[in-house]
Simulated assay, not measured.
Amino acid sequence: MPPSATHLRLSDVEPKPRWMTSWEKLKHKEAHWFVEMVAEMLGAFLLVYAGVGATAAFVVGSITGQVGMGSLYTIGFAYATGVTFAISLCAATSGGHFNPGITIMFVVFRGFPLRKAARYIFAQILGAYITCMIVYVQWKDLLVIAENILIEKGLYDTVMFSSSGPAGVFGFYVAPSVNLLRVLLNEFVTDFVIGLVVWGCLDPTNHMIPPSAAPILIGLAFGLAGWSYSPVGVATNTARDLGGRLAAMTIWGLNAVGGRYEYAAIAALGNIPATLCAALVYELFLGSTTRTLTPNHIHFLRAHKQYYEDNNLAPYGYLEGLNPQRNRSASLQSDLYEKSQTEVVEVFDNHV
């Protein structure tokens, strides 16, 4: 398809090699569901790989007495970086959920298809599990050294399956003396804050947050959770918790479940009602359907909708509202956008 003044595609400027052409057609149509699942898995991989690796450094360094291998700050910063990478690289393909709580939030508030949601949740948990197993292989020699030190000091039974032990690199645990009601409150409020930030970043009428800023803001929200509230006990992500716990059980057996089964439920499920509550509060008090979409969001959403239309993929949610009958301000922004696209096409034609 030749380039037009309205839509300039990457294939118009940078055609794919022949060996990629067939796959391009397949992945945008029949295999699009599979590509979305891979994107969710890769997003989970990026955030878990960053966070679990930093946690491994902190735990091993603490047990072996090696100063400077990690800290609470490096763990929080690693998760913030991983979330930023995940959204920046994978969200354009799948929407960037990477968390069953976010997917369920989309089901409730955006009409996200249930079958698609089930595929996403499976991909997220599987991605987190595979990532934890990869990190274990990378860190195995040092983790074994840490285990042997705990055995020599007689601390294996008390430390191994705790947040300070090697199993705590992958699974989430709390101390036997910790009040679980306070842990539940800590999990709920922390996840509520993250959910509020996520939903605010998804609001196309929020003029303070352009789409390009969303990955950084959401990453900082996860960093805040690690820096401020992880010592009390916080998981923030069902996929991260279940994937990590299953990995720990694969490595060390059923002992890795942890002695407090109630906390396992809090870690795995606590973020879901908190995320839903955050979206509800934002919709009731902070969002407004009478506000106009920002210029950045108009371009962002229209490009996304055009992709769905070009590949015969049914748009969902508010994307259906981006039709030719737009209001005056949207039309003005569209005219400016089309003018800029025309200039790009002219440059392209002159170059060719």
Rank of each mutant, 00 (worst) to 15 (best):
residue 126 L to Q: 05
residue 70 G to I: 00
residue 245 R to F: 02
residue 56 A to T: 02
residue 180 L to I: 08
residue 41 M to D: 01
residue 45 F to Q: 05
residue 195 G to V: 01
residue 217 L to P: 02
residue 219 G to W: 04
residue 342 T to E: 15
residue 81 T to K: 09
residue 251 I to F: 06
residue 195 G to T: 01
residue 192 F to P: 01
residue 340 S to V: 03
residue 275 T to N: 12
residue 246 L to S: 08
residue 83 V to R: 09
residue 229 Y to D: 11
residue 333 Q to H: 11
residue 228 S to C: 14
residue 52 V to H: 08
residue 263 Y to R: 09
residue 228 S to P: 01
residue 44 A to S: 15
residue 119 R to F: 06
residue 122 F to D: 02
residue 268 A to R: 10
residue 285 F to D: 13
residue 139 W to L: 04
residue 33 W to S: 11
residue 77 F to R: 10
residue 274 A to E: 05
residue 150 L to E: 10
residue 267 A to W: 00
residue 149 I to A: 07
residue 254 L to V: 03
residue 162 S to T: 11
residue 195 G to D: 02
residue 197 V to L: 08
residue 23 W to P: 00
residue 239 A to P: 01
residue 90 C to G: 02
residue 43 G to Q: 03
residue 65 G to D: 08
residue 82 G to A: 12
residue 65 G to N: 10
residue 160 M to T: 00
residue 340 S to R: 14
residue 45 F to A: 03
residue 178 V to K: 15
residue 81 T to C: 15
residue 341 Q to T: 12
residue 295 P to T: 06
residue 220 L to F: 13
residue 25 K to F: 01
residue 59 V to H: 06
residue 23 W to V: 11
residue 225 A to R: 02
residue 264 A to S: 13
residue 136 Y to Q: 11
residue 336 L to M: 14
residue 252 W to N: 08
residue 224 L to R: 06
residue 170 F to Q: 03
residue 242 L to A: 12
residue 232 V to S: 12
residue 250 T to P: 03
residue 303 A to Y: 01
residue 66 Q to F: 01
residue 298 I to P: 00
residue 216 I to W: 09
residue 322 L to T: 00
residue 240 R to T: 00
residue 179 N to Q: 08
residue 215 P to R: 10
residue 146 A to L: 00
residue 119 R to S: 07
residue 141 D to M: 07
residue 236 T to H: 04
residue 22 S to D: 13
residue 283 E to Q: 12
residue 59 V to K: 05
residue 45 F to S: 02
residue 135 V to C: 07
residue 242 L to W: 05
residue 123 A to K: 02
residue 122 F to S: 12
residue 71 S to P: 07
residue 282 Y to Q: 08
residue 47 L to Q: 11
residue 57 A to V: 00
residue 110 R to M: 06
residue 87 I to H: 07
residue 194 I to A: 02
residue 312 N to E: 13
residue 201 C to Y: 04
residue 247 A to R: 03
residue 313 L to P: 03
residue 12 D to Y: 02
residue 285 F to S: 15
residue 293 L to N: 14
residue 205 T to H: 06
residue 127 G to R: 03
residue 206 N to Y: 07
residue 312 N to I: 04
residue 157 D to H: 14
residue 184 L to K: 10
residue 328 R to D: 14
residue 63 I to L: 06
residue 335 D to I: 11
residue 135 V to W: 05
residue 50 A to Q: 10
residue 266 I to R: 04
residue 319 L to Q: 06
residue 142 L to Y: 11
residue 269 L to M: 12
residue 172 F to M: 14
residue 99 N to G: 06
residue 144 V to G: 04
residue 303 A to H: 07
residue 177 S to T: 13
residue 295 P to D: 11
residue 69 M to G: 09
residue 181 L to S: 10
residue 74 T to N: 10
residue 104 I to F: 07
residue 150 L to V: 04
residue 320 E to N: 15
residue 119 R to L: 07
residue 101 G to H: 09
residue 57 A to N: 15
